[in-house]
């Protein structure tokens, strides 16, 4: 019998005037599980986790954290949450250690336990040797790591990370991803939002693909890729009238989706090898000058394209 979920949210709705930013989102996360919300910017990821953390009042739906209902005014339920916001939310005029000390007091940690946990958190994020420097003097990557250390400090049962690698150098990014992997291994439930497919594939046990405030599909990577079936993702890189190329290719039998991104046409097709000569011919007739072709096995990018008809980073 599996352990009770740490987070259960159902039917979350948030409206900003006429705009429905989140429309009926629901999911569960069990202890030790990492759940990813994968979607492009503006899909509703941050609004969803703002409601999950009790930061934002919701218009409908329920959130239960560690068995306790959560609202914006809850106090007990929030104690189970560690929150790492997308922006770097640290006090630049306090040292790294002072930042952590303050949050340990806010979470009601006893001084001795806090001292121990602060040391551990600094070690985990690799800031122990710079702990007594002002956070304002840290590099961007170091601030990101301090940002995460604050979320981890009180050993939360649910850790919520909102795009924690945005604007981070590759070295710090890798360190962050390794840290999240280790946390999930330690039994913490992790809610991770990203628009990087590679991060979702690497970290998440289950993934919810979110677009326009709605979860389009949910499951393990294998389950999601199966939605695409035997389809491949073909990428035609080149120049010329790529929009016309996408339109023309999209009309061919066996082509399921076509879109333009970053100087290339992304296609979801059935049987890429057999269809490739026809695709190149149509592309040339449509005014495109193709100078590179990539054929990929189905991945989350393919799934997103399949589900929404647009690329993940549009």
């Amino acid at each position: 019998m599996s352990a009770a979920p740490v987070l259960v949210c159902t039917g979350l709705v948030k409206r900003f005037g006429d705009l429905v930013a989140v429309d009926g989102v629901g999911f569960e996360i069990s202890p030790g599980e990492t759940y990813g919300l994968l979607g492009p910017n503006g899909a509703g990821k941050t609004t969803t986790i703002s409601m999950v953390c009790g930061l934002l009042e919701r218009d409908d739906g329920d959130v239960v954290v560690a068995g306790r209902p959560l609202t914006t005014t809850s106090v007990e339920a929030k104690a189970a949450i560690g929150y790492v916001p997308q922006e770097i939310a640290v006090y630049p005029d306090l040292t790294g250690r002072e930042n952590l000390r303050f949050f340990s007091r806010l979470y009601g940690m006893a001084p001795a336990a806090a001292t121990e946990r602060i040391g551990e958190a600094l070690e985990v994020v690799g800031l122990a040797d710079r702990a007594d420097d002002l956070a304002g003097e840290y590099s961007g990557g170091m601030k990101r790591r301090l940002n995460i250390a604050i979320g981890l400090l009180h050993r939360p049962r649910l850790l919520v990370l909102d795009e924690p690698t945005v604007g981070v150098d590759p070295q710090s990014r890798n360190a962050i991803l390794e840290g999240v992997e280790a946390l999930a291994g330690g039994g913490i439930a992790v809610l991770y939002t990203t628009h990087y497919m590679e991060e979702a594939e690497r970290l998440c046990d289950r993934i919810g693909i979110i677009d326009a405030g709605v979860i389009r599909a949910e499951g393990t990577r294998r389950e999601l890729v199966a939605l695409v079936g035997e389809r491949d993702r073909v990428r035609l890189a080149g120049s010329g009238d790529l929009a016309s190329v996408a339109t023309a290719c999209g009309a061919l039998p066996g082509v399921e989706a076509a879109s333009v991104r970053d100087g290339a046409v992304d296609l979801i097709v059935e049987g890429a090898r057999g269809l490739l000569p026809e695709l190149l011919r149509v592309a040339a007739e449509s005014g495109g000058l193709v100078d590179g072709v990539d054929v990929h096995e189905p991945d989350l990018e393919s799934v997103f394209l399949h589900l929404t008809g647009k690329a993940l980073r549009d």
Binding site: T73, A79, P85, I88, V90, Y107
Partner: peptide, 15 residues
Amino acid sequence: RQGTLGRLLVAPVSR
């Protein structure tokens, strides 16, 4: 502005 108010609001602390 610096995002720390969000952190305070998510902490187990009443407004």
